[in-house]
Amino acid sequence: MIVATRKNVRELKQLLAPYQRIAVLGCGTCVTVCLAGGEREAGMMASALRMASRLDGVEKDIRDLTIERQCDDAFIDEAWKSLDEADAILSLACGAGVQALAHRFPGKPVFPGVDTQFIGILEEQGIWAEKCIACGHCRIGSYGAICPVTRCAKHILNGPCGGSHDGKCEVNPDTDCAWQLIYDRLKAIGEEYRMEEIAPLADWSLSNEGGCRKIIREDQRI
């Protein structure tokens, strides 16, 4: 899922200063699961912003609502009327959701209400970790399903580097060395031989380094 974190109330109050009627829009998918931008968080943020504005002597009309998925026009339609009535929208979805809204409401200011962090998983209650940077050519089949592009600080495809120490990364001793994890896992699945395979040069133009990506599937077009 996409993992996000909440933004400071002060920052948002400032962003929204020029607007009177504000829709705080939660998203029912990833940001609900990571507890950053779901129905509850939208309610909390709307309440916090109402109070913060009131302390500045301004009474604002700030309402929250939550839709199933903000990165999908079909779901935005459900809330179209309430959103259209607002002077500005504060979206608690990931960056994709925020931009989907901006696209759908060309004349309306839309602001991000969370900081989108990464594609990751819930490791334990309250702890989320990044697992994939969407590089465009998944190669983790060679690495025991552990991603060195994302999880090795040096992104090396032929590791480890010389700094791996007691299973920890030399860049940050609090982080597991991705290559230690790869080795342990390959051993566990009986594929240690893969450690000796040399990965060829990677084509990073397939990743976001090559610019914004778009997928066109003729079979799906109408």
């Binding site: 400071n8 109330v9 002060r10 909390m44 916090a48 109070m51 913060a52 302390l55």
Partner: peptide
């Protein structure tokens, strides 16, 4: 923490 950010 949130109360502090609000100004309470």
């Amino acid at each position: 923490q949130i109360l502090d950010e609000i100004g309470i």
